[in-house]
């Protein structure tokens, strides 16, 4: 019984942790959208900023991956 409650808590926690992915999605979408908006205004400057785009996306995505990792830890490791 006690184990079952612990199991349940793990699943709830893991599910809650996946909500962090939404934040990462918002962040990545924000970066990509702003990049596109800027690129459409000044297309000649866009290729030079591709590296910054990827770095920005990587930073935003890393946080989402953290929450995914927490979900995995709850599911499998705790």
């Amino acid at each position: 019984m006690e184990g079952d409650i612990a199991e349940m808590g793990k699943f709830i926690g893991a599910g809650l942790a996946t909500m962090g992915l939404g934040g990462a999605g918002i962040g990545v979408g924000h970066i990509a959208g702003n990049f596109l908006a800027g690129a459409l205004r000044n297309p000649s400057a866009a290729p030079g900023q591709m590296a910054n785009l990827f770095v920005g996306i990587a930073f935003a995505e890393a946080l989402g991956i953290f929450s995914f990792l927490i979900a995995l830890l709850l599911m499998f490791a705790v």
């Binding site: 990587a58 995505e61 890393a62 991956i65 953290f66 995914f68 990792l69």
Partner: peptide, 16 residues
Amino acid sequence: LSHSIRLGGNLMAGHA
């Protein structure tokens, strides 16, 4: 930390 978890986490997540 972020440097390593980004790479490992991305690949792990995709394969999983």
